[in-house]
């Protein structure tokens, strides 16, 4: 018996969320009194794989086939299932990101493993096996019992944090035949914004709403984001009006995020918006209306016009840095 984590890489590199996944899985293995195996798919340099050892991974299986450098959920799911079988994994853990969401359900069907997405913490109990997940778009949590022998979890970002646990890593190639039939989806073009902080990864997010009054007024938001190394986001009305792109929309029907710091500028805090940010560690709200509902979920609040407050905040941050 064991516990297996699938460590996704991005162009051969892991992210903090990968290390959080390993930290979580190690703690779960300890809880279950068993060992942990980490699976990596695609070409990743040995030094990078060894970084996983900083968070408790002592055994890494790697499928270093260049054909697998980009995500193909069908092929990845096939490999995850086979690796899980080979190490007799009882629990399979993935990050609750795009790839995890695409792979985990497929593995669930392959192995008849009960699947719970967006898990918030270590299991509440092991027998029965009960985990806590966010439901109703972050408005509540559900306790979900997994009844099958095999279990598959995807864990929510920032739910566990990083736990340093250095150990020696044994890296092993996991050999298997790859069914070329599984590559029916062909990537013909890819665009990536290299210079921008990615919203779903960002530790700090500066988000703005209709209180900005016009799309021409976004400079103070971008300047604040720049000094903080933050991603920019917006509320639904702003993306609906076309002031900002849909990829920036945060809320129940947009992206659900959980950064360390979320700054809401000129956002009133409709229930749907709050659902998308409620798991942020710290929320700062800036709004002219002292009765705006955003203040009831914020940790820090400033009543004032965003067009005045944001530049002041940017200046104060610059001063504190220098």
């Amino acid at each position: 018996m064991s516990v297996i984590a699938f460590a996704k890489n991005w162009n051969g590199k892991f992210k903090n969320s990968t290390f959080e996944l390993v930290s979580y899985t190690k703690a779960l293995a300890n809880q279950l009194n068993t060992n942990m195996v980490v699976l990596s798919i695609g070409e990743v340099a040995e030094e990078e794989l060894k970084l996983l050892g900083n968070y408790g991974a002592d055994k890494v299986l790697t499928v270093s086939n260049p054909q697998l450098n980009t995500l193909t959920s069908r092929a990845y799911a096939d490999i995850v299932a086979k690796a899980a079988n080979s190490v007799e994994a009882e629990v399979i853990v993935l990050s609750d990101n795009n790839s995890g969401k695409a792979i985990a359900p497929r593995v669930s069907v392959k192995l008849k493993a009960g699947h719970v997405a967006a898990v918030q913490e270590l299991p509440l109990s092991l027998d029965p096996f009960v985990v806590k997940k966010s439901v109703f778009s972050g408005k509540a949590f559900g306790h979900i019992q997994i009844k099958s022998d095999k279990k598959i979890l995807t864990i929510a970002k920032n739910c566990f944090g990083l736990v340093a646990n250095p150990c020696d890593v044994a890296i092993e190639e996991f050999a298997l035949d790859i069914d070329t039939n599984l590559f029916k989806v062909k990537i013909i073009q890819e665009e990536e914004q290299k210079d921008k902080v990615i919203l779903s990864d960002a530790d700090i997010v500066v988000s703005a709403g209709r209180g900005m009054r016009s799309p021409e007024n976004w400079t103070p938001v971008e300047e604040l984001a720049e000094v903080l190394g933050a991603a920019t986001a917006c509320s639904r009305p702003v993306s609906d009006e076309g002031w900002r792109g849909h990829e920036e929309h945060v809320g129940q029907t947009g992206k659900v995020i959980a950064p360390n710091l979320y700054i809401a500028a000129g956002i009133s805090g409709a229930i749907q918006h709050v659902a998308g940010i409620s798991r942020s560690k710290c929320i700062v709200a800036i709004n002219t209306d002292p009765e705006a509902p955003i203040f009831s979920v914020a940790d820090y609040g400033i009543v004032g016009d965003v067009m005045d407050v944001l530049p002041r905040l940017t200046k104060a941050l610059r001063n504190s840095k220098s």
Partner: peptide
């Protein structure tokens, strides 16, 4: 049926928002 919801809980109420002068 592989999983079952057995209980729900609402998120903890946030503490009061600390107001700062603009």
């Amino acid at each position: 049926v592989l999983t079952e919801s057995i209980k729900f809980e609402l998120p903890q109420e946030k503490g009061a928002c600390k107001m700062i002068d603009s």
